[in-house]
């Protein structure tokens, strides 16, 4: 149906949008959202390759399931940390969390 490289380009676009979000957003929660975008793109990439290289075995799809799982876990932890930081400093602005600054 669709050539593999088109799907890959699609996932690359999603990935780079996510990357921009990580670097440009100030709110910690929004950064985590952008990370989710990136992981999502990765999963799409994996599925595309799986259909191309391993159509009968579906290993990429299983890999994608794991990626989603881990992404969810990581998001939970990340939000827990963000909440903790919010409670201690009163803000989730990543610019303000620079105690390790020179």
């Amino acid at each position: 149906m669709v050539p593999t490289e088109h799907v890959l380009v699609f996932s690359a676009i999603l990935f780079c949008i996510g990357m921009y979000g990580v670097m440009a957003r100030r709110n910690g929660v929004l950064v985590l959202m952008a990370i989710e975008l990136m992981l999502n793109a990765v999963a799409v990439n994996l599925v595309a390759f799986s259909n191309r290289i391993d159509p009968q075995g579906g290993s990429g799809i299983i890999f994608a399931i794991f990626v989603i799982t881990i992404a969810a876990a990581e998001l939970g932890l990340g939000l827990a940390i963000v909440l903790r930081v919010y409670r201690m400093r009163g803000s989730v602005n990543v610019d303000e969390a620079d105690l390790m600054r020179w």
Partner: peptide
């Protein structure tokens, strides 16, 4: 070299990328 340690996560992410 200590000026590299800005303490800001997005800088680090940038360097990572």
């Amino acid at each position: 070299l200590r000026y590299l340690e800005t303490g800001r996560v997005y800088h680090y992410a940038f360097a990572f990328i």
